[in-house]
Simulated scan of single mutants.
Amino acid sequence: MNIFLKANWENIIMVNYEIAPEILMPYLPKGVELDLFEGKAYISLVGFMFKKTKLFNVSIPKLGTFEEINLRFYVTRTESDLVKRGVVFINETIPYKIVAWIANKLYKEHYTVVPTKHSIVKDSINQKIKFEWLVQKKWNSIYVENRMSSHQMKKDSLEKFIYEHYYGYTKINEQTTEEYRLHHPSWKIHEVVDYEIACDFKAMYSNDFSVLNETKPTAVFIAEGSSVAIEWKRKKIYTNNERS
């Protein structure tokens, strides 16, 4: 297995919204279908820490630790008897131009670069974490207060649906999709006791997602995270045929 990227993902906050499937359809890559939970489509505003980042097992001096904010939704693809559950990113935001350039150049990802920052305050009982990013001279933010104790996700729960997608799908063009695989263990999650979301979805992600400005999250989760590895090899999926 040839690993392109390896890093620790920590304090992974998922702010989850029900969304009309027709909003997502223009962003749906060929060869995959929307993955629904109890018949509903979801989209997640995500904030987490990237730490100890390595490309092809080489550390990135001074650039290996940063915040990432992304917006993603959920898809599925069936090959014979194998069901692959994956994510599609609308946008991924980080603070470093060179890291974004590498991801966009090599894989045609959707990384953008804006100033970001975070704060973490914790004691033996609670943790307060805040991710912030600057868009059009205005700071957006995700804030969560959670218990420090953690537990396994329950089977068939919304949090398990949200967190446990182990493939990524990138829309290269109207005919071609790229598939890649992620590796990480099943994460433990913390109990969220308070949260506050200040995100201008229209300014950040276009008018297509402006409805989220007026939508209350269905649920907010935070996971401990772990080391994560992303494979180098990507499979190209074509409209009428497949080849690696």
Results as ranks from 00 to 15, higher is better:
Ala7Ile: 00
Asn11Cys: 07
Ile13Glu: 01
Met14Cys: 15
Met14Pro: 03
Asn16Asp: 07
Asn16His: 07
Glu18Gln: 14
Ala20Gln: 11
Glu22Val: 09
Ile23Arg: 09
Ile23Gln: 04
Met25Ala: 14
Leu34Asn: 04
Asp35His: 05
Leu36Ser: 09
Phe37Pro: 06
Phe37Ser: 10
Lys40Val: 04
Ile43Leu: 03
Gly47Gln: 02
Gly47Phe: 01
Thr53Met: 08
Asn57Leu: 07
Ile60Gly: 03
Leu63His: 07
Glu68Pro: 05
Ile69Val: 00
Tyr74Met: 02
Glu79Arg: 15
Glu79Gly: 12
Glu79Phe: 11
Asp81Phe: 03
Asp81Leu: 00
Lys84Cys: 03
Phe89Lys: 04
Ile90Cys: 15
Lys97Asn: 13
Ala103Asp: 04
Asn104Asp: 03
Asn104Pro: 06
Asn104Glu: 02
Tyr107Glu: 05
His110Asn: 10
His110Glu: 11
Thr112Cys: 07
Val113Asn: 04
Ile120Pro: 07
Val121Gly: 01
Lys122Glu: 15
Asp123Leu: 14
Ile125Trp: 01
Ile125Phe: 08
Glu132Arg: 05
Lys138Gln: 14
Trp139Ser: 03
Val144Thr: 04
Glu145Arg: 14
Glu145Asp: 05
Lys154Glu: 11
Glu159Ala: 12
Glu159Lys: 10
Glu164Ala: 08
His165Gln: 04
Tyr167Val: 10
Gly168Asn: 06
Tyr169Phe: 10
Thr170Leu: 14
Ile172Ser: 02
Ile172Met: 08
Asn173Lys: 09
Glu174Cys: 06
Thr176Val: 11
Thr177Val: 03
Glu179Gly: 05
Leu182Trp: 11
Pro185Met: 07
Trp187Gly: 09
Ile189His: 10
His190Trp: 03
Glu191Cys: 10
Val192Gly: 05
Val193Tyr: 01
Glu196Arg: 13
Ala198Gln: 11
Cys199Trp: 05
Phe201Cys: 00
Lys202Leu: 08
Ser206His: 11
Ser206Leu: 02
Ser206Gln: 09
Val211His: 06
Thr218Ala: 13
Phe221Val: 10
Glu224Asn: 14
Ser227Leu: 11
Ala229Thr: 13
Trp232Gln: 15
Arg234Leu: 10
Lys236Tyr: 01
Tyr238Gly: 01
Tyr238Gln: 12
Thr239Arg: 14
Glu242Asn: 13
